[in-house]
Write a protein that binds this DNA or RNA. Structure first.
Lengths: 220, 220
DNA sequence: TTTAATAGTGTAATAAATACACATTATATT
DNA sequence: AATATAATGTGTATTTATTACACTATTAAA
């Protein structure tokens, strides 16, 4: 007999100019062989915060990811075996730093794989609804803000940052105005390093200055 | 045997320059005789949206209130009879239009009563945490926005509106600048009516022009 | 008629957002 | 060596929004 409720994790990343979501291929009924966002039952005496990390690790191999609660979903018909409430969490991770580590630890999932957000397979349960809600949250709460930088490599170009904003907001931005804005925020540190392996002028790399970031954010 | 989870409702209002929350006095164990936000168990085959309205009505006598999901709370120790997850919802209502209707329908609660948000009694379960989370949500998402107007009477003065903003933001605002801002938004309709029963110059009344509001909001 | 209490109003200064186009640089190709 | 390609990096003028700031007008009550 399973416990009362499950946790499901929307794990987003950014690559190739597109938002990516990490899906797992189920190895158990219901929805065996379907793609789903990683999730599982919470243990009886387990705090949700602990469960999120455990489940995320077991289903994808990923560890130490910061997750925020998104919402609870409890549609009567969402689960074919009876109404099971799930609490969805949302996390942002850097695509490159994580690619090699993705592999389920448990046998409950067959594999874990990134999918571009606008090219998703059919999904188990109400997981498409959960993903859509995540995208809404992303759009409303984090443009020009904190956790955004979890989606980029540690060192990134301003063009990458702009593409990320564009992907989230669903519209193009003016390059000069974007850079001006970024500058006034004042918490990006330019490095003495440049992009490598491109067949055109290499762009300067930047990283988030966390010290300054927290100063700026602490105020408003 | 109760179903898997509960719903709790944070019902906020505004009166006397202060945010108010509707609490119910429990008539059952655990926490018998304690004040709590109204809530109860969701039925096995009941959609959450339906349960919210049913529970809110049974516990407070209020009907037809629009509620937004706030978050799920599931601390292992939050409920003395074992971990019970609750999904908290948040609603805004007009203080005056509702005062007389507040009276529990079920006997599960003894009475329902408004409390000023900064003068709360001890609360059952983790309900203080839930209320605090509501206030954070209110602050982050609705200044100069929609559901705010649910907290005011249909016809209100600009000073009332300003006091509401100040209560939510926890700081004072400049009267002229506030009115200028409100004006540029353009969805408040001035009426040919004035405040009554005050012993000083009566203020003009305004109401929300929902048509214009949706136009403005629809864009950004 | 005076007092008390709140309503209602404008301007100047600063900061932020927008619109808009071209020279620069690194690599690859011939 | 010269050229083509593809993306980087930069400035100014205009409009819009935000901030700071103080007095007169109106009403009811004393």
């Amino acid at each position: 007999m399973h416990s009362q409720f499950t946790i499901d994790c929307v794990i987003l990343s950014f690559d190739n100019g597109t938002l990516q979501v990490l899906l797992t291929e189920r190895n158990e009924y219901p929805y065996k062989d379907w793609w789903s966002i990683p999730g599982y039952f919470v243990d009886k005496y387990e705090e949700m915060e602990d469960a999120v990390y455990r489940i995320c690790h077991e289903m994808t191999g990923l560890k130490n990811i910061y997750m925020d609660q998104l919402a609870a979903f409890a549609g009567v018909k969402r689960h074919p075996e009876g109404r099971i409430l799930t609490v969805a969490y949302l996390a942002f991770v850097q695509y490159d730093s994580i690619k090699s580590k993705i592999k389920p630890v448990s046998t409950y999932m067959k594999q874990a794989k990134w999918f571009a957000i606008n090219d998703l397979p059919d999904l188990a349960f109400d997981h498409l609804e959960i993903i859509n809600k995540s995208l809404g949250r992303l759009k409303n709460t984090i443009s020009y803000s904190a956790s955004l930088y979890e989606l980029l490599p540690e060192k990134f170009t301003l063009t990458q940052l702009q593409l990320l904003h564009e992907a989230i907001l669903g519209k193009t931005l003016d390059k000069r105005n974007f850079r001006k804005k970024i500058n006034t925020l004042g918490y990006l540190k330019p490095l003495d390093e440049y992009q490598k392996g491109v067949s055109y002028r290499a762009a300067k790399l930047y990283k988030l200055d966390k010290r300054k970031f927290h100063k700026v954010i602490g105020q408003g």
